Simulated assay, not measured.
Amino acid sequence: MPGGGFIKLPNGTVVVALTLPRPCPDGTGGNGKVRVLVHAVNRARALTRLRNLGMRAVYLRGNAEPPTPDEITAVLHHPDGLLWRTAPDRTAELWHPIRALLG
């Protein structure tokens, strides 16, 4: 089961962080996991943004792995508000735009 969590920001928006299996373009699943960050108006909208990108089975159950302060900063400073990197976190790896994962 994927892990994840969210945090509500002072302006009312949320940052959702999910640890998911790495998707493959052919739909067979991937090797390893990725940490995906989404900035949106609310949790439902964040999950909808991922589902609209083809990640149909994305759910957020609980708040076991909320985003860290560094993750929040990264997603807030990205124009798309959608980022990913391999999980577990590799501190040397930079965050990637979501299109690099799906393309």
Rank of each mutant, 00 (worst) to 15 (best):
K8Y: 13
G54I: 10
D26C: 13
L101W: 08
G29Q: 07
G81D: 05
D26Y: 12
P25N: 08
P10V: 10
R85N: 09
V36A: 01
N11P: 03
G30M: 09
M55K: 00
L102H: 02
P21L: 09
G12T: 12
A57N: 06
P97L: 10
E93N: 14
H78W: 04
C24M: 15
V38H: 03
L60V: 08
R99S: 14
R61G: 05
E71W: 00
R45Y: 04
G29S: 06
T91E: 14
T68Q: 01
Y59M: 03
T73W: 00
A100T: 15
G103R: 14
D70W: 03
R90N: 15
R35L: 12
P97A: 10
T28H: 13
D89L: 14
V36H: 01
D26L: 06
M55P: 00
K33L: 09
P79K: 06
G12S: 12
G27H: 06
E65Q: 06
T28M: 05
L101S: 10
V14L: 04
G54K: 00
D80W: 01
N11L: 09
P66R: 00
A17G: 05
L9D: 07
R49C: 06
V58K: 00
V75A: 02
A74R: 01
P23D: 09
L47S: 02
L20A: 01
R85I: 13
A57W: 04
R45Q: 13
G3I: 15
V36D: 05
T13S: 08
N31C: 10
K33N: 07
A87G: 01
R35D: 12
T91Q: 10
N63E: 10
R99G: 11
G12P: 04
D70T: 13
E71T: 05
A64P: 00
A17H: 12
M55Q: 06
W84D: 06
H96A: 11
P88N: 07
G12W: 08
I7K: 01
H78A: 13
P25K: 11
Y59E: 12
